[in-house]
């Protein structure tokens, strides 16, 4: 039982990373209606910017805020330059462009900052919270920040006019234009916000996995999984999904003999597919009705 609890706690700690990423994914899904495969790389690139700022001597929190601002602007710019011309193109073309962005960011980061692993500081410290090797202060801080972002997002989307306009633009762009919403700007704003949240995720994740151009690839996979399990339309679902993926992964690794450790990832993914087969729109996702 003790082992079980320990593994759940450890799972929650890693799950915090996935939850953070899943939140960023759902965020952009809400704004643009696509899964952005380049999201992890955007977060990674932002984290490198933060690292560079700190190398130049900025204190942690200044670099933190500056990175968020830069990432937001870069997200908006990216939408306006690279994605705007794709307006109205098939979904498959969008996905290819996301793949292209992935390749560009990954390769550019490697080129600028090379592929050596770099340590990244944590503002929360590394001392253990509940005894050895389970959850560190940093893990706790990361979970707290994820939850705070979740609350802020909820407030933003439910209780501000611009949040309402963003939801409307994503749900029904044609109608949104008819009420005078500048849909193009809402999409750009969505990209900016997603990039900013991704930057936060990256800066929180980097102390755990260390900073390098490929740091986000597997995390993005888990983030996707978490987001989809939770239901892509629900930020809360994404967070819950992210935590569950972390816990499932850990438990499978510990308790399924022989196969578990080697195929941790496989088992987690199989479970996710199983969940989806039972509940095709995720745990908290909305069932979308189609009319003829």
């Amino acid at each position: 039982m003790d082992l079980f609890l320990h593994q759940v706690l450890a799972g929650l700690a890693t799950g915090g990373i996935y939850a953070c990423m899943a939140l960023a994914i759902v965020m952009i899904y809400q704004a643009i209606d696509h899964l952005n495969f380049a999201q992890g790389e955007m977060a990674m690139f932002s984290t490198f910017i933060a690292w560079q700022l700190m190398q130049w001597g900025l204190p942690y929190w200044v670099a933190f805020v500056a990175t968020i601002v830069i990432s937001f602007a870069a997200g908006v710019l990216l939408e306006q330059t690279v994605l705007r011309p794709l307006h109205g193109a098939p979904v498959l073309s969008h996905i290819v462009v996301f793949i292209a962005l992935f390749a560009i960011l990954n390769s550019a980061a490697g080129f600028i900052w090379d592929y050596t692993v770099k340590p990244f500081p944590t503002p929360f410290g590394t001392q253990p919270l509940f005894g050895q090797g389970l959850m560190s202060a940093h893990d706790g801080g990361m979970i707290a920040v994820t939850l705070i972002i979740l609350v802020l997002l909820y407030l933003f989307f439910r209780h501000t006019r611009i949040g309402l306009a963003m939801r409307a633009a994503a749900a029904n762009p044609a109608s949104a234009r008819l009420v005078g919403i500048r849909v193009g700007w809402m999409v750009a704003l969505g990209w900016g916000m997603a990039a900013a949240i991704g930057a936060v995720a990256g800066m929180l994740i980097a102390p755990v996995v260390f900073l390098e151009p490929n740091m986000m690839i597997s995390i993005l996979l888990y983030g996707f999984a978490g987001a989809v399990v939770g239901g892509l339309t629900s930020p809360l679902g994404a967070v819950i999904g992210g935590f569950s993926v972390g816990v499932i992964e850990n438990l499978a690794g510990t308790f399924i003999p022989y196969v578990g450790r080697e195929m941790k990832l496989t088992i987690a993914l199989a479970l996710i597919v199983a969940v989806l087969t039972v509940k095709p729109s995720g745990l908290l996702g909305r069932r979308v009705m189609t009319r003829v």
Binding site: L164, A165, A168, A171, N172, A174, L178, I181
Partner: peptide
């Protein structure tokens, strides 16, 4: 518009709020 163009997942009042977005 044809087909009403309602924001179907939002509440009636949110729809009205959206109408005044400008």
């Amino acid at each position: 518009p044809e087909g009403r163009g309602t924001f179907s997942r939002m509440t009636a009042e949110e729809n009205l709020q959206l109408g005044a977005m400008t």
